[in-house]
Design a protein around this nucleic acid. Sequence first.
DNA 1: TACCCCATCTTACCATCGTCAAGATCGGTC
DNA 2: GACCGATCTTGACGATGGTAAGATGGGGTA
Lengths: 208, 208
Amino acid sequence: MPSREPKSSRPYHHGDLPAALLSAAEEILERDGIQGLTLRATARAVGVSHAAPAGHFGDLTSLLSELAALGYRRFGVALMEAVDAAGGNPRVRMKAMGRAYVGFARKHPGLFALMYRSERLDFARPALRDAIANARGALRAAASARAPAEPLTPLQMAAQSTALWALVHGFAVLLIDGRLSGLIASLPEEESADTLLEAVLATARVGE
Amino acid sequence: MPSREPKSSRPYHHGDLPAALLSAAEEILERDGIQGLTLRATARAVGVSHAAPAGHFGDLTSLLSELAALGYRRFGVALMEAVDAAGGNPRVRMKAMGRAYVGFARKHPGLFALMYRSERLDFARPALRDAIANARGALRAAASARAPAEPLTPLQMAAQSTALWALVHGFAVLLIDGRLSGLIASLPEEESADTLLEAVLATARVGE
DNA sequence: TACCCCATCTTACCATCGTCAAGATCGGTC
DNA sequence: GACCGATCTTGACGATGGTAAGATGGGGTA
């Protein structure tokens, strides 16, 4: 029978090439942006020929999708950890999620941008689908408040979680894109992106 | 020179090539997405050689930037018109802006995506800078509510407008990226993206 | 009217990219 | 020790953005 031992087994010529490619791809992504992240640049960084990645990832879309899946797994973990550590108060949980969401985007701006660049990704990839579903679950866990005094319609419930998601996602996108830099610079001396985020989260109605 | 003219005579000198290129570029952008919008495809659509655009726009970044500037001008007009037509109630103005914001993104998804794809744009271009500043002004006009009973700090004021912007921008981005399609599909029969947007805007605290 | 300037557009070429096909290389198994 | 197949390399193709040099003809000027 063919010995189909995956990456965890003994290295080959170069070692664990798929992992090395993903690692190099992430480095290039954060250093040069999505524009600089090419198959050939990744192969060069690892020290293999330009066609080597095709053996493990079929094409560029697949490599980007696997990298995005890696990002979503980290993202889901970061969100879940922050929410879990926040305790039981829905409003505190919501704020913790927002801080973790924006914090991840600021820490890995290239990866975050890739994760939301749909035209470069293949959502049919199981790894990406699963990672997204997992992160979505972490989001839901943060938005789930106890049932309020008067029950909400399905639309109102959806609007609550959607509004929270849109708020933090929009803030993250605008922030890492530099669209808020002028406004932040115009604030009083000691204010920064962090305090602006706190003030923005304070305007959210979720959990009240 | 037996050059065929499919639609109109094609003299050696086109006439208004820059405008024709921008128009063709927008068509390609909305039909094929940013991936399909290339200098050569644009030149082909207009019927000129692949190097012709370089004479008017220096490079691809410049063409994309001019197209984005065109989008921002339309965007600013759409926002301003909607807010002006909404009357004086701050909350009504806010909702009108949100509807116009998301409506523009849904009507011109490719253009909207380009407008917020910073790494492909050159913000040093005066046309783009001016158009963005104009649209930003329209946004501010919508968020400007009367001074509330208790005065707000500069940070709180900035947070008000930033939160509104982040909310509608995040919703628009997530919507045209298909990230809300699953949630919308799970809603009761008659609900749609429009009603979800209304419910999301209803959660905003601006203007209260 | 005739001519010439030069903005406009074309042709030709280069480097880079993704992708594919064929061949070389080496580890593991019999 | 020899084969087999997974892994990687080489080389090629078409497409892209960009540049340089040449062709073209519209419009101002004599």
